[in-house]
Design a protein around this nucleic acid. Structure first.
Lengths: 361, 361
DNA sequence: TACGATGACTTGTACGTACAACATCTTAAT
DNA sequence: ATTAAGATGTTGTACGTACAAGTCATCGTA
């Protein structure tokens, strides 16, 4: 017993733990009684009791009134650590999300972690529900795709709770500005820039853009889109920039697209940049319905290089998908096990040229 | 404070717990100090400390030296039952599986259950891994899509362990013959029958079939396929029935299909029945490469009504997908909560006619 | 205004006493 | 030999004192 700063009852606890670990006291064997210990260590019985109390709570020993104190539990380490990680995405079944989940799942499984899955349908209330559920029981870490990231974060309290409980988390695709945590995302602004720049290089000057405005991915892609135009000295006509929210995504962009497609040939855009492949495919159908040829009459660029883009020969920008899931899992595990912190990881999107962009002279 | 038999510190504990539960002390709010309590209840400060100590260990309150004692954790009941359900599917990201998972997830979330996800890539070893992982920590129930169901079940031990631990489980898509448990599946034999019958009715007599043989879905679809032929009195030429395993699925059926497509017009099949839409789409590409028109030169039928079939206008058979996931979740929850047992649920597949079947005279 | 000292209050550590409740062995009476 | 009472040792409850250590507001001084 050395340091006077360490309380005696904790010093005693360390001593007794070493007895247990060294095997000096095997499971089921009787401990020296409280009085014996107190005499041996020159401590009061009360102090010994305090130590015993803690060790009992932690499962190291068992006290039976009238009989004595007995050693327990040589194998199981205190409260064996939880190995369960949650992932909350906006959607589960559609589009690129299954690929992200798959990447994460494979990595986690190989590291002996279980994967909890939940989705928000891009609704704040469901995000809250999911957070509540996930944290209602033991959890070692959390991967979150923010819901409507451009609209702030009403569930801040839950994230602070995570920090308090010391549950590390990281964000994918986007991050809430209010929270300091590592994130993995694509440089969406660069993506928007590359899309528009590619069209401009191919002689397009009347380009329409369709972007989601309630998540930051959409906002940033639009930023890049505008940036490319500014650099080329081409002004973007306001009616050619269509922004919409999750709730409007079924109708609004489709209707606006029809509107633009039906305008006379001078005013009709020669190219569409679409928030993602899903939208691009729908708008391509609209174009075909209007009797236009792709890409001769109208060019298309999508985002995310989803399986949709392959079949439809859509030019699009890459998204790491599976890799992102994998890396997110790896980073989170190292945050849990090594306590390391990561800076943000930003992926550079690449343009994949297929057959949906026409070169105009 | 009534009974003299109950120790005072436990009586005090009950009292304080009732304060916490009634919301009289909200999370984060400061407790009366130890001295205040001891005065109020006419107990010594030591006794109060004993009570506080237990409550702190159990997470009801937090004590900070110098500041005071604060209420915590209003929601979580100490022994609260585990509400976590696992789902093990062969794949995660592809094809119809995301839809099944989504159905289950939505239902589980609405019932306050968390969803654990794992996949097997249709490999027995990974199935074992997943079972091990899932059961390594508390679990209330399990939904399993059997892996290579036609090849028996080397992981039987783990399923028996589930029964021993009283963890209910059910199977989807197929079931291991060795195990007695509820299952939800499609009547694949009826599906195979309907596919072949539809073609036969449309004048096809040389129909090739491609079926997976290491899972029961494939085996049963083939059974129905043969049954329909038998009923029509048409013999199936052996070289027109291609069976393959998971490991071969990338190459073998494709090569065999090319073989058949390249044969002279007399011998060439006029229709393909494919194990699922995924395969159908690949073989349709092969047919186009061979210069054949769909459906004039060759007809196609797939299975599962996946999103692939829509774009390619493939005639196919329905699969409940999301509904199956939903129902599986609902049934499992009722097995957990009411202890009810279910018989198997069998869905009847319906033929969806699109444009991939040609009517021959 | 800025800063430090102080005091009042909190919980934490440490020791002490007394007796209760329970288990086990010893002893004495039957 | 059997049984009951008692002795002894164990942990559990309950109270008490004293001081240490940390937090915070207030007051006073530079």
């Amino acid at each position: 017993m050395s340091n006077r700063r360490i309380p005696k009852y904790l010093q005693l606890k360390e001593e007794l733990l070493s007895w247990l670990e060294s095997g000096r006291l095997q499971t089921g064997k009787q401990f020296p009684s409280e009085n014996e210990i107190s005499e041996q260590f020159k401590l009061s019985r009360q102090t010994v009791r305090q130590t015993f109390g803690e060790l009992e709570k932690e499962g190291w020993l068992e006290r039976i009134q009238g009989k004595g104190t007995f050693a327990r539990n040589p194998g199981r380490r205190e409260g064996e650590q939880v190995k369960t990680i949650g992932i909350i995405t906006t959607y589960i079944s559609d589009y690129i999300f299954p690929h992200i989940v798959r990447g994460a799942e494979a990595e986690l499984r190989s590291q002996g972690y279980r994967l909890l899955l939940s989705s928000t349908d891009n609704k704040k209330e469901k995000e809250m529900e999911s957070l509540q559920l996930m944290t209602s029981q033991p959890l070692s870490g959390l991967i979150i795709e923010p819901t409507k990231s451009a609209e702030g974060n009403p569930n801040l309290g839950y994230f602070l709770e995570l920090q308090e409980k010391n549950i590390p988390y990281l964000m994918i695709n986007e991050k809430y500005r209010e929270l300091e945590c590592p994130s993995l995302r694509v440089d969406d602004e660069a993506g928007g820039y590359k899309a528009a720049a590619h069209l401009l290089e191919n002689g397009h000057t009347q380009i329409a853009g369709f972007f989601k405005r309630d998540d930051l991915q959409g906002v940033n892609r639009l930023k890049g889109f505008l940036h490319a135009h500014r650099e080329s000295g081409i002004t973007v006509s306001p009616q050619r920039v269509v922004t919409y929210t999750t709730e409007q995504k079924q109708d609004l962009p489709y209707k606006q697209a029809l509107e633009l497609l039906k305008s006379n040939e001078q005013n009709r855009p020669t190219a569409f940049v679409c928030y993602n492949d899903e939208l691009a495919v729908r708008l391509m159908e609209a174009a075909v319905l209007c009797g236009l040829r792709i890409p001769e009459d109208i060019s298309f660029i999508g985002f995310d290089d989803s399986s949709l883009s392959l079949g439809t020969r859509l030019t699009t920008l890459t998204h790491p998908k599976t890799t992102m899931g994998e890396m997110a899992a790896r980073q989170l595990i190292s945050m849990i096990e090594q306590g390391s912190t990561y800076e943000d990881t930003v992926f550079e999107p690449e343009l994949i040229k297929r057959q949906s962009v026409f070169k105009r002279k």
